[in-house]
Nucleic acid binder design. Structure first.
Lengths: 333, 333
DNA sequence: CCTTGGCCTGACAACGATGTCACGATTTGA
DNA sequence: TCAAATCGTGACATCGTTGTCAGGCCAAGG
C-alpha cells in the first residue's frame, strides 16, 4: 500500500479511501491510485484492515462437520457457502470424524482465527465449553445435532418423527419382527432415531422384545456384519430400519449376500445416491441438508446483524421416499 | 492480551513468550500468566501475530474445487485437509461450478486473505493472471486439470490413458459402434478423455466415423437425454463410454428406461457410489482423488519449505474396475 | 479584499501481536 | 569483594490498514 501511495504520489489514507470506495476523492486522484494499484498488482490485506476496523469482522465462518467427504455434510457445506459467498464471507470447514477431542481442537483453531460465527455439528457430551465465546458475542448455531449443556440456536432434522414414520411404514406392511440398526449412542441423532423407532412400536402395541436393536454401528462393514448375524439367526427379522447412511449401504450388502434383498423390507434414514437404480429401489427417510445448511447460515448472519431474539430450535422435516424396498410386505419370505 | 498482562502483573512481551512457549521465563511467572489467560479465556489473535511475525504465514490454504458437494472434490478436499491439519493449517474451500468468473473472484478472495498457498481446479482458458502472485512467491498447485499459459505444478489423473483403457476394454468385447458421452470441451480433462477414446479407436484401426461423439454434457439429465436419442436412432451404439460421473449416472438411467442395461456395454470414467450394487454392476475407470489431494498438499508444503525444483506434472494412475457393465460382449442385443 | 465554509488530502495513532534491544538482578569466577 | 557473564523481563518500534482530525485550497458572500 505504501508503494501504491508513493507511485500515485498521494498519502496512505487516500489509497485506503479509493480502495474502499469512500467518498471525497477527486476522480483524477482516484484514477492515479487505481492505476498504481493495478501496476503493482496490489491486493489489500484484509487481516490488517480487520485489525484496525471498528466492527472487528474477519468475514469468515467456521463450519464443523463430520467429514467434508460425506454427502450429507457436503450438502450442508455447500448451502452454507452459498449463503456466505454473497456477503463476501469465506468458510473454514473442518472434518472431525465425530471425535470430541478433535471437535474442541477445531473450535479453538476457529476462535484463534477470529471467525465471525460458528456452525457446529457436535459430538461432545456437553458444549458448555463454548460459554465464554458466547458471552463474547460470537453467534453459534448447531446443525444436525442439538446442543446440550448450553442454550443456543440449532437446526436439525425431525429425527424421531422420521424414524417413527419409517417404522410405521414397515408395520403397515404387516411386519412385526423388526430390526433397528443404529449408530453410536453418544450421538444425539442416533438416540432420537432409536426413540422414534421404539415409540412407533409402542404405539402399534408391539412389545419391544420382538424387535432387535443393534447399536454402536458406525461403518458400512460393521453394519453389514451385524445384519448378516441377524439374518443367520434362527428368527431373522422380516424388516429392517437402518438409521444412517453408511448403515443402510451395509444393510443392502448383507441382504444381497444372503439373497434376501427381495423379501426383507428395508427403510433407511438419510438418502443414498443411486438408491432408485437398485433392485429393489431403496425406500428412505430423506433429510434436507441444503435447507439445514442454508437456515443455519441465515441464522448466524441474523445474529451478526443484531438479532437477539431467544434461541430457537428449528426443525426441518423429513420426506419418506418410497422406492420399493420399504413396501415389501410380510409373507414375501 | 493487555488484560492478561495486567492480571498477571507482567509485561506484554512476557505474555507473548509464555503463550508461544519461548524459553527464558521463570516457571512461577509462566504459571501466573497461564492462570490469568485461563481466567480471562484468552485466545491469541493469529492474524495480529502474523502481521508482525517475520515469516508472514497465515496458516491457511485456499482450495478451489468444482463444488464441495461433489464426491470427487470432497475426497480431494478431505485429503488436503488431512495433510494440512497436522501443520496447524486451515483450509478455505470454494465451489466455483466450473465458472471462469467465479474462479477469478475466488482466487482474489484467497489472496486478500493472504493464504500461504493455493490448490486450484481451473476452468479458465489461461491462468496467466496468476503470474504476479507466483512472482510474489505463493505456491500454487493445480489439481485435476493442468494449467495453461503458465508453468506451475499440477497433479492430475491420467485421463487420456484411462479413457483409452476403457475404450480398449470395450473393443476387446467385440464392440465397434461405440458412443462417447463427454463434458464441455472447455474443460481440459474432457478433451483429454476424448483424445484417449479416439486414439484407442485409431490403434484398433476403427474409422472414427463409426463412433458417435456427444459432448457439451454437464448434467445427469442432459446425458440421459443424449443417450436416449442415440438409443432411439436407427443404428444405436452397442457400447458406451461415459466420460464423467454425472454423465455415467445419466447414461445408466437412459439404458434402464429403454431396457437396454443388460445388452449395452457401459464403462464410466470416475467411480460412482454403489456402482457395485447395481445390476449389472457398473464398470468404471476409477480415479484416486485422495492421492491427488494429498500429493497436491504435500507439494504446496514442500514449496513453502523452500523446495524450488522445476515445476512438475504429477500423474496419478487410474484403475479399471470390472463390475459387469463393461464386460457385456457384442451380440448380446 | 477578506472571511467563511466546503471539499480534498495527509499526518498520526491505534488495532493485537512479536522482534529487538537494553536494563537490572543474579550467578559465576577471579 | 568486585567485575563479568548470564538470565529474566519489559519498553518500544513495527506489521498493513483504517478512524480521527487538522490543515490547505478554493469558491461564495459580505
Amino acid at each position: 500500500m505504501r508503494q501504491v501511495a508513493k507511485l500515485a504520489g498521494v498519502g496512505l489514507k487516500t489509497v485506503s479511501r479509493v480502495i474502499n470506495g469512500e467518498p471525497g476523492v477527486t476522480p483524477a486522484t482516484a484514477r492515479r491510485v487505481t492505476d498504481a494499484a493495478r501496476a503493482l498488482d496490489y491486493q489489500p490485506d484484509v487481516h490488517a484492515g480487520n485489525l484496525r476496523r471498528s466492527d472487528r469482522r474477519t468475514g469468515t465462518l467456521g463450519l464443523l462437520i463430520s467429514s467434508v467427504d460425506n454427502p450429507f455434510a457436503g450438502a450442508v457445506h455447500r448451502a452454507v457457502e452459498d449463503a456466505a459467498a454473497p456477503r463476501g464471507v469465506a468458510v473454514f470447514a473442518s472434518s472431525f470424524d465425530d471425535d470430541p477431542n478433535r471437535e474442541r481442537e477445531a473450535v479453538i483453531a476457529f476462535l484463534r482465527r477470529r471467525v465471525d460465527g460458528l456452525i457446529l455439528t457436535t459430538s461432545t457430551a456437553s458444549q458448555a465449553y463454548l460459554e465464554p465465546e458466547v458471552r463474547r458475542g460470537t453467534p453459534i448455531v448447531f446443525v444436525d445435532r442439538e446442543p446440550s449443556g448450553i442454550d443456543l440456536d440449532a437446526v436439525v432434522s425431525d429425527n424421531a418423527e422420521g424414524a417413527a414414520r419409517a417404522t410405521a411404514h414397515l408395520l403397515a406392511r404387516g411386519h412385526r419382527r423388526l430390526a433397528y440398526l443404529g449408530d453410536r449412542r453418544e450421538i444425539q441423532t442416533a438416540r432420537e432415531r432409536r426413540r422414534g423407532f421404539l415409540e412407533a412400536l409402542g404405539r402399534a402395541g408391539i412389545p419391544t422384545g420382538e424387535a432387535t436393536v443393534v447399536e454402536e454401528l458406525h461403518s458400512e462393514r460393521g453394519a453389514r456384519d451385524a445384519l448378516l448375524r441377524l439374518l443367520d439367526s434362527p428368527d431373522p427379522p422380516t424388516a429392517v430400519f437402518s438409521a444412517q447412511n453408511l448403515i443402510t449401504v451395509g444393510a443392502i450388502r448383507a441382504l444381497r449376500e444372503r439373497g434376501r434383498a427381495l423379501d426383507t423390507a428395508l427403510v433407511g434414514f438419510d438418502d443414498v445416491d443411486l438408491a432408485d437404480l437398485l433392485e429393489p429401489g431403496i425406500t428412505v427417510v430423506a433429510q434436507h441438508p441444503e435447507d439445514i445448511g442454508r437456515i443455519a447460515a441465515e441464522r448466524v448472519f441474523a445474529r451478526l446483524d443484531g438479532d437477539d431474539s431467544p434461541t430457537r430450535r428449528i426443525v426441518v422435516g423429513t420426506t419418506l421416499i418410497e422406492r420399493g424396498s420399504g413396501e415389501i410386505p410380510l409373507g414375501s419370505q
